[in-house]
Computed example of a mutant assay.
Amino acid sequence: MSQILWCDNVMVDFDGFKALQGVDLMIEPNEVRFLIGPNGAGKTTILDVICGKTKATSGRVLFEEVVNLGSLQEHKIVQKGIARKFQNPSIFSQLSVFENLELSIRQKRNLTSVLFARMTGETKNHIEKVLEQIGLQDFVYKQAGELSHGQKQWLEIGMQLMQNPSLLLLDEPIAGMTGKEREKTGELMHEISASCSVLVVEHDMDFVRKYSKQVTVMHEGKILCEGNMTDVQENEHVQEVYLGRRKQTC
């Protein structure tokens, strides 16, 4: 099976601080991959490299096997099919839920087309589909700023889905959510994976245990181990480094 994303020996050096030290990461089509590790492990930095916010010092990031993301600007990477949701929701609070989604699909167009665009049947159907997917179909005309925290998170995920990405990057998507909101978000991520791959940075281990299939553990800018959650939890290096456990000596 071909990879949707391949990070090949990626290194990032910030004036002598090696944030990433030769990261090799492969994401398959329709995969939900969790990226975990202590603070400072390099999780957010690898997302920054993938979306073009940070340029790698060396190494390659290949998208759909042929596109070298390192040579592209951020907006070009979005156009190629990579969307990112940051930890804090970034929505247009004064606009309705519908208007937020409508504006998102128009981000690929120039200013003139945004100002004079008319709603097509295809666009309307796409918005309605995303509204149902994120569970906000009953809040179409509600002002986004009046939504609950969890609903704002789902709205921003929906805004990314409006661009029909092949890869969705989520940075701590359940931060500040209630228990029921977390469950819905976990289910939503797997539903999204039917049409695109999802790479999730998350600190909540209960959530990771419940909704992960494949987990990548990072430490000090390197990949420590990969596998399902059971394999990861039983890995001695993870127990020593990530869980703070050390081998018993006789």
Rank of each mutant, 00 (worst) to 15 (best):
E128K: 15
M189D: 02
S197P: 05
A194K: 15
H190A: 01
H126M: 08
N110I: 11
A194Q: 15
V130D: 04
M159N: 02
D171Y: 13
Q94W: 04
A144Q: 10
S113I: 13
A175R: 12
N110W: 09
R109P: 04
T112E: 05
V140Y: 03
K222M: 06
G121L: 05
D138Y: 08
L111G: 03
D231M: 06
L111T: 13
M159L: 06
L170A: 03
Q151W: 06
F98M: 14
S193P: 07
E99M: 10
G221E: 10
K213D: 07
Q151F: 05
S193A: 10
R118V: 13
T230N: 09
F207W: 06
K210M: 01
M218A: 07
D231E: 15
K124P: 06
E202D: 00
W154E: 05
H219K: 06
D206W: 06
Q153D: 04
G221W: 00
S113E: 15
N164E: 12
N100P: 05
N228K: 04
V200E: 00
I127D: 10
F139W: 12
V217T: 11
D138I: 09
A175T: 14
G135C: 11
C196E: 00
D206E: 12
K129C: 03
K124S: 06
I223N: 03
A117R: 12
D171K: 12
E146N: 15
K152F: 06
V140A: 01
F98Q: 11
Q143E: 14
E183Q: 15
V217I: 11
L224H: 06
Q214A: 03
H219R: 04
M159Y: 03
P165Q: 08
S166R: 12
Q163T: 15
A144D: 09
I192G: 03
E99T: 15
T120M: 08
L147N: 13
D171M: 12
A194Y: 10
E128R: 14
S113K: 14
L111K: 10
Q214I: 01
H219S: 09
K184Q: 15
Q163A: 14
